[in-house]
């Protein structure tokens, strides 16, 4: 009845791992980009200078409103024509597109975290004569991390999965290589199952740093 050919996964293993490597590279670089950009956007949003707030709100509205696929198409087909970006390789365009898209979400997560800190903490710091720069760094940010970590990490799992969309601009990451292999071996069931298992392992592993960080930043009671 069944005519499985699971060894095809073994024969394709090296290529699958090549794809996984690119998936992880896309993930790591776009995560760093998204986090830095998200932090800047969150601080802009909370600034007292209204044009900065306006730009940040507009950025978040636009990139939360369009599919990551469309952002990737932009990064791939258009970004290279922008001044100073002619050196972009397709892989770098993928990282840029994913990072720019995810930054909108990271900005909202960071902002929500900073806003979650009791206003009394700002007041107490002000009353003690601390500068805003000092108490943001020492008092507000450390307390906001506790709130930020869980949503930041689950959002990062979404980013890891979103790297698969890079297949749409021709990158041969895990999903792309799986599609190619399945076309050439006519074994889609086995290969897509293998890819699903690899993704499951990666997304499940991301829970480990989350639990560590949550413990690290828990308040002592």
């Amino acid at each position: 009845m069944s005519d499985w050919d699971w060894p095809v996964v073994g024969r394709s293993w090296d290529l699958l791992m090549e794809g996984t490597k690119l998936t992880l590279q896309l993930f790591a670089v776009s995560l760093i980009l998204a986090t830095l950009l998200g932090l800047i956007l969150a601080l802009m949003r909370m600034s007292s200078i209204s044009p900065l707030r306006f730009i940040s709100a507009g950025y978040v509205w636009v990139f939360r409103g369009i599919p990551v696929f469309v952002t990737l198409l932009f990064a791939f087909f258009v970004a290279r024509d922008l001044p100073g970006l002619s050196w972009l390789t397709p892989i770098q365009a993928g990282m840029l597109g994913l990072g720019v898209d995810a930054a909108a979400y990271k900005a909202e997560i960071i902002r929500a975290g900073l806003l979650s800190v009791d206003p009394g903490q700002h007041e107490a710091s002000e009353a003690l004569g601390m500068t805003k720069r000092h108490y943001m760094r020492r008092i507000i940010v450390p307390q906001s991390i506790r709130v930020i970590v869980p949503t930041y990490m689950s959002n990062s799992i979404l980013l890891l999965k979103a790297t698969s969309v890079a297949v749409g601009i021709g990158l041969v990451e895990l999903t792309g290589i799986t599609r190619q292999l399945s076309n050439s071996t006519f074994r889609p069931v086995e290969l897509f199952t293998a890819a699903a298992v690899i993704y499951l392992v990666l997304t499940t592993l991301l829970v480990v740093p989350q639990e560590y960080l949550e413990r690290r930043f828990a308040l002592k009671t």
Binding site: D118, G120, Q121, E123, A124, A127, I139, P142, Q143, L219
Partner: peptide
């Protein structure tokens, strides 16, 4: 200044 709700830094 001392506040009604203490406002100690909890961390």
């Amino acid at each position: 200044m001392v506040f009604q709700r203490f406002n100690l830094f909890p961390h």
